[in-house]
Nucleic acid binder design. Structure first.
Ligand SMILES: [Mn+2]
Ligand SMILES: [Mn+2]
Ligand SMILES: [Zn+2]
Ligand SMILES: [Zn+2]
Lengths: 133, 133
DNA sequence: GATGTTGCTGCAATACGTTGCAATAACGAC
DNA sequence: GTCGTTATTGCAACGTATTGCAGCAACATC
């Protein structure tokens, strides 16, 4: 991490170290607010603005990615095995991942039809799951 | 409007009348915050909570639909001619609509593969447009 | 180890939205 | 028109996220 930051003229600070530690212990998806809270557990003096700004930096480095839940709140995930989108059932609150394969249809359609490059990590689709219909 | 509400045991209040008036003059997409602002122009005593709660009611009635911009903020649109999704370029801020046809691929894939019913109005896809690549 | 540069932090203010609760008022019934 | 029921409002507090700015500190250089 330290080297990745330095390579871009950025700095390795205690606050960043704390967030990276928190992230390394995180699996699956987390909201930004939860990450702030977990950093506070480590260091109660943690400020939200610093956490959110650090998350932006880490996203630029490709360490994390974010999307938004059905309510628009940020959801982060760390170093996913494979890029994927997100599926949420409005009725039961269930959440699933959309694989690149599954999304290939729309990604290809927008690519060839409009020359548009889709950010699959940021895609969230909301609706009703089989059980809730 | 009055009858649609009464049919469900709901009430036709001045505050709802004001929002409906504002909406009737609205074309395309608007953020929730802008709607609050426009209601305030008509009646400065307007409260955000009332506006947002009324928007929920109107959405249940099918009068409006909402999605979220790339930043997660709410975007409403009134009685669209056809249901559609939303496409945003992260670089230039450009926005386009995704027709039902264009989205048919993914909607069908999730439907047949998982029995999932997609809410296309709520779909927002972010990435880079042809010009910005 | 001291010094200068400049990226980062913390603070305070702001924006957007939601929620609990007590008071209000729309509505139907008489 | 009056009255009772209960949906709705307005308020205050809270949750989530972003931004400008002044002071601080990580880093490279010597
Ligand atoms: Mn939503
Ligand atoms: Mn986003
Ligand atoms: Zn469900
Ligand atoms: Zn663009």
């Amino acid at each position: 991490m330290r080297e990745r930051l330095h390579a871009r003229g950025l700095r390795w600070t205690p606050q960043r170290r704390a967030l990276v530690t928190v992230l390394s212990r995180t699996h699956g998806h987390v909201t930004g607010a939860v990450l702030v809270e977990r950093c506070r557990e480590q260091d109660p003096s943690t400020t939200p603005s610093t956490v959110y700004r650090t998350l932006e930096v880490l996203e630029e480095l490709g360490i994390v990615r974010h999307g938004h839940g059905p309510d628009g709140r940020q959801q982060y995930h760390v170093l996913p095995d494979a890029e994927h989108g997100h599926l949420h059932c409005r009725a039961c609150g269930g959440a699933w991942e959309i694989s690149a394969d599954e999304a290939a249809s729309i990604v290809a359609a927008l690519e060839s039809g409009r020359g548009f490059a889709v950010d699959l990590s940021h895609v969230t689709i909301v609706g009703r799951c089989r059980d809730c219909r």
